[in-house]
Amino acid sequence: MTNRNRVMLIVWWWKYGGLEEAWDEWTVAGYPEGHKLIRMDEPRSAAGTALIRSCVEDHLENSDVFIFLHRNHGYNQQAIEEILSGLSDHQRHISQLKCFLFGEGNDDLYIAKQPRALLGTKGTFRANMHLPNHHGNLIDAVANPATHQLKREHFDFVWKVYSHAFKAKVFELKEDLLTAFVDFSNMDLIPSGELYRYIRLPENRLLFLRLLSFTGRMRKGSDLERELIQWESREKRSLFFDDFSTNLKTTYGELEGRIYKNLVEAIKTHIFSVQGEADLPSIRGQFESLLSVMSEATYI
């Protein structure tokens, strides 16, 4: 773990939980004051974007920063681009800066998904933890309102999960993809269009949608996007890559961005194209290159 401070900025329904200012800050029990969670409840707008960027800029010199943007507040891949592109190269690379999109309750931010996460019922840190003696009652599972402090194990858990979230998603996509195509693995020659026809089969639908998201071919507001949202709900996990690609191109670095672009090209060429020969080892090679340059561990 880095010695730098860790700051999480979460844009969510905090006003339902009593947030009256534009934002407020919660420190973490047992850590120096520089470790904090900033609550903000701003819908996507130019002013909202500026406020988030300004807030992030204030912390980048001394802290690693994770930004969590709620999709239902209107945030999307483009919003991430707006926020991150407004920062200088120095600001983007001086620290670990990641920007995530979340929503619909299936992310590892939610206590309902992960008991050691942060977000409780709408706008609060409170949740029913299913503990003995608390039958049906909401308890302050995450924070102590009296001291304005978060419990450190919850803060640490979310930070750790999201530190590795991008890489784990890429790794799982690679494994799922190669598993799906395992029948082709020993063919000396995969006929043109064969992989595309195969990925379009109903049993491979989710993989197809994830590949579209990964390669940036899923339009905002499209039926495909709605379909993937439904899959997220069904699978109870984060499946979109819209935040990932922007982060990779902006905050990870040029090399990472270039390798990602090569991988996207390889997928388009070998899988989405109906012409030419498909080469699975080549796709695997590109995946492994990308995974090797992402410095974090795949899993915690």
Binding site: S185, N186, R284
Partner: peptide
Amino acid sequence: GFSDFQGDNYLDLLHL
């Protein structure tokens, strides 16, 4: 597995 390893006890499923 699908990792690009080489080893006497590793079976690369892309290069059986």
